[in-house]
Design a protein around this nucleic acid. Sequence first.
DNA 1: GGGCCGCAAACCA
DNA 2: TTCCATGGTTTGCGGCCC
Length: 693
Amino acid sequence: MGEKEIEKGDSSSGDSARPWQSYHTVYTNAKPGMDGVDKEKVQRIVYEMSKGSKYFENEQRKEAFTRQKIESMRAQCAKLTAADISHYQTMANKQISELEGTRDLSRVWLHVDMDAFYAAVETLSNPLLKGKPMAVGSMSMISTANYEARRFGVRAAMPGFIARKLCPELIFVPTDFKKYTYFSDLTRKVFHKYDPNFMATSLDEAFLDITDICKERVINSGEIAEELRTTVYEETGLTCSAGVGPNRLLAKVCSDINKPNGQFVLPNDWMAVMTFISSLPIRKIGGIGKVTEHILRDVFGINTCEDMLQKGGFVCALFSHSTAEFFLSVGLGLGKTDTPQVKLRKSISNERTFAATGDEALLHQKLCDLADMLSADMQKEGLSGRTLTLKLKTSSFEVRTRAMTLQQYICSSEDILKYASNLLKAELPVSLRLIGLRLSQFNEDKVGAPSDTTQKTLTDFLLSRDTSRKLGGRNGSLGAIIDDHRFMNDTETDFPIDSHEIYGYNGKDLLDSNHLPYLNDNNHAISNKAGEMGKIHEPLNNETANETNLPEPKSHQNAVSELLEADSSSVPFTCSSLDEENKRANLLDDEAVSTSNQSELLMWVNDYKCSLCGIELPPSFVEERQEHFDFHLAERLQKEESLYDTRTIKQRHRFSQKDNVASQSKRKKQKTCPKDKGRIPIDAFFVKSSKNF
DNA sequence: GGGCCGCAAACCA
DNA sequence: TTCCATGGTTTGCGGCCC
């Protein structure tokens, strides 16, 4: 079977009566709702629509590179002696038995996946779309297609113009993330009832550890899944699919089996797992994508998870230790069973695609816009970074990155633009269709830290004035309150924190009106997050007090009508995050600061010049001066919060970080382990540790 | 020569 | 006419330092 596939792959380079068969796209993979699709026809149309384009040429280049990699690995395989193979097989067996020893069948995980989420939400908002082929996205790119459209071969990540060729009646609906976020929040309220620590991996997917609730209610996992799906439907009008398994990797695979609107339960039983995994195609595993599948199939003839174990010796021979370990664990059906702790974000980026141009003035303008956007995001999060990465996509779709690490941490658009311009200049002349900017290496320890350690921080100052009483937190300190609401997933916090969603919920929503959910008639935020905001402000702002128990839509009709009534104009929090900060600063200012010693923050040098930033404002500019003071106060507050955030997290995760460091250095040691020498590493076999499975 | 850091590229969801 | 945006992760490689 593997050989046959290799033949097929090899034929791609030669002339053929069916050249489209050699154009490997992701569009012909088996996907729920795509049964009965004429795959050959889809492949031919995709090929014909793409042929000759720059995108197509770049895809050909990439594929040629993969083929080269495959050839090189085959050559390495061929060089292995019988003794080598025996050695690596022993190594694989040992690793398999060690991995088997780590198997944990004590937890029950449930993966929920909303069915064609964006498309379903759009249909809910506009019932006229029901039963018609429809795609959410644009002529350039489709985000989701409904099941009617999938029957034509239309699917997510496909360019709209190809989709229209496949299905001329296809209706295009533009994306509306506010809508999706709103419905996502409704689903999460349901998830929270089953697992307060559930892990959302995107707007439409989540993992729940249902071990405890199954025990408490003496009910089996299938019944829980059934009940959860019914509740989600009652609350939102949307259907979802569920998978239950002993770990997240398996639960995710299971949720795909009876999609849409179905579920599959894999019992926590060794034999059941091994039987299930034995014939499972490797592509079903999260983390194994098009390229990995291609390589494993064409080099080793690995098609199913079971093959991973059978070819374990070769896998150990040719891949790095961590990569081989992942592949072998896939063969055993192992996955994560713990609930991971909070992860800090490591970078912030912005990128934009535009009509390809080599016009330097235009490119510079794009860079300016991106620098502004990135700076705004950085300041919203209260972060500074010292590694700036410029990403470019040329008009021929070649992607380049250019990075520089600075001595100092930056976040202002001026600084970002200054360094980004230098990076871009070095690439000119060039015709580009995308520019991106990314900042990383954040200053966790330095954000908001006072330069003079003897100087009180603003938080100290506020706390020293018995702010804790005013803030009314049960822990009695601002730091504790911030800590609780952002990082504790306790009864006051409906939403989980995970590597994906922490940004949406814990960084932005707190202060960013643009991320606030829909509001009801009384301008009461429906989402619990807004409730948290109310809590935080409660002692300071009566308007938002007592809004923590916000109305839940009783049915999806309510949800829809609220949604339809609520357009952006009805959202009261329309000010920028900085304005929001200023409001907070003003409130704090009224309570604690304005009557006091402002010089803790800034002084007017010679009664004219700001001691912090140097801006000059005459004494007669009273209002402007106050605004300026407010600005610095807000800035300071934001930094203080960030400091608490990072410190708190650091304290909580000191041990896990140590573990990480240990494992990293272990990996580095492994890299140079003599046994690893001679193995061919390939670029992308890393994915397992990036996943939450 | 090993450890560490930074850069560039690639893959994946 | 037209092929996204964002963020995480791994890996190889090269430079620097001890």
